[in-house]
Design a protein around this nucleic acid. Sequence first.
DNA 1: AATTTGACCAACCGCCACATG
DNA 2: TCATGTGGCGGTTGGTCAAAT
Length: 281
Amino acid sequence: MRGLRKGTWSKEEDQLLRRCIEKFGEGKWSQVPLRAGLNRCGKSCRLRWLDYLRPNIKRGDFEPDELDLIIRMHKLLGNRQVRQLICYLRWSLIAGRLPGRTANDIKNYYNTHLKKNSFFKYHTDQEEQVVMVENLDNNINDHCPRVPKRKCQLLLDINNVDDGNNVNLLKMKTKIIRPLPRRFSRGEWQWITNKALPENRTDNINSATAATTPNMDSSKRSTKFSEGIDDDHRTHYFNYDNDQEVDEGGNVADNNYWNSFYLDHNSGHMLGEEQDPYFIF
DNA sequence: AATTTGACCAACCGCCACATG
DNA sequence: TCATGTGGCGGTTGGTCAAAT
């Protein structure tokens, strides 16, 4: 369409968009420009809101735990056989595990810092649950003065936990990350695993799990699923320090059930005594 | 001081899946 | 069943700015 504004958003435009969303809520993006009085396309408004203006968006450098999760999940998703058929990396899936981070932010960070041709090379050690960070430039501080700010910061973080024995192969301390449970549709499950779901499973999460998950109070089960199955619901996450699920206020949730699950980083499956193929990642 | 280089990241683009009529 | 609209996603582009020359 002609005459629509493109490029960087002004403060005035941000304000108009913010007011519009506050008044009408998210969605119906094609109507947003008219409602907000913006000379932008709806798609542009949606992107601006979701990636920048939305409340609780976390900006700035990534924490070591966040980096760890990005690397692990990218490795996991990038190795899928089906990816050879269609190039499809799920940044949004990774973003769903990092409260406040957007898929675009993670994608940008990965493309500039973590790609193969980047400054560091990463290996994951399954047994020790650590990420090995290999410095590809032995003396980067001596003869590579133009190290960007972000990379300097990353190098500094890594050196802080280095045991000092090996300057080129460092271990970045990390903790086992327990991600949110996630529901996959029948089609998505088959896409990822290349295995058909048993016929007695349905796509209705409550009925399906009620039928197959033993030893769990039904009311508790229902609550957990309603909070955990949707990528857009990020109100619960795990406190890595003590492996307890906490809400946004830091209150410890009843997680007796989910504590019995953990992620197998090799297979991508949620494992536990009550293993359920619906819950991977 | 002026110019060049390169990192960063906001924003756009094109494609796809799904919903609706 | 098909056409159209809408939203969501990954890949890419281009503007900005700091550092190097």
